[in-house]
Amino acid sequence: MTFKQYLPEGSSEGKAKMSLDHGATFGDILKILDIPIELPKIVIINGVIQISDEINARVLIDGDIVSVFPPVGGG
């Protein structure tokens, strides 16, 4: 699985800048990018892995770096 297909226009190397309304949540990003909310995923905000079940309600602030990965593993 890859989330590549959900990348917005103008993104490069899997990264994009997004302008969001004040008070926008992580769940809002998923909606904007059309990523199905139920897809299993690993979420990292500013380098910190998010383990909360309530992650979709997390309010983002200006400058937050959000990474979303499908389930991965190896080693």
Partner: peptide, 25 residues
């Protein structure tokens, strides 16, 4: 049914971890 064993590892092998481990600092 496991996403790692059915998708991530078959498609990308173990280096699938590079990006995520990097993002996690």
């Amino acid at each position: 049914a496991g996403p790692v064993t059915s998708e991530a590892l078959p498609a990308f092998g173990t280096p699938v971890l590079v990006n995520i481990v990097n993002e996690c600092n």
